[in-house]
Each structure stands twice: as structure tokens, then as C-alpha cells.
């Protein structure tokens, strides 16, 4: 029972943190799996970071966003 409580508390806290991450400031997700990196994702990320300087923004490396859209 204790472990389930611990897990549920853990999940609640993470959900709260995840929601907060995107609810009060701009976030940029960069597709940084091997395909993205080989196409220049890290360069794009560096440019976005250098352009922003004082602008409050979270830049997060995520995996493959390669949706065939």
C-alpha cells in the first residue's frame, strides 16, 4: 500500500511540474533524436538560445518529432 501511495504522490508532483513548465512561460521543444541532430537540430537550438538571451524561455531537447504531417 505504501509503495502505491508513494507512486501516486510522485506522479501528482510530476504532473504538477510538467504542467507548470508549459503554463507560465514559453517553451521550445527541439527534436533531438539522431535524425534531428544529423539534420542540424543542435545548430537550430544554439541559434534560438543565442537570439533569446534575456527572454525567459525553456528550451528542451525531446526525441523524434518526425511526424509525417
Amino acid at each position: 500500500m505504501g509503495s502505491i501511495m508513494k507512486f501516486e504522490e510522485m506522479v501528482q508532483q510530476e504532473k504538477k511540474d510538467y504542467t507548470l513548465l508549459f503554463s507560465d512561460k514559453t517553451a521550445v521543444l527541439v527534436g533531438s533524436a539522431t535524425c534531428g541532430n544529423s539534420a542540424g537540430a543542435q545548430t537550430a537550438k544554439d541559434i534560438i538560445r543565442s537570439e533569446l538571451s534575456d527572454f525567459e524561455c525553456e528550451i528542451i531537447d525531446v526525441g523524434c518529432i518526425g511526424l509525417l504531417c
Binding site: 517553451a27 521550445v28 521543444l29 527534436g31 537540430a41 537550430a44 518529432i65
Partner: peptide, 10 residues
Amino acid sequence: CYAEPIVMVL
């Protein structure tokens, strides 16, 4: 993927 690099702005 044909559209890499991909960036999402939230």
C-alpha cells in the same frame, strides 16, 4: 524524416 530539424513552440 523529411522535415528535420523540427522545432515546436509552446
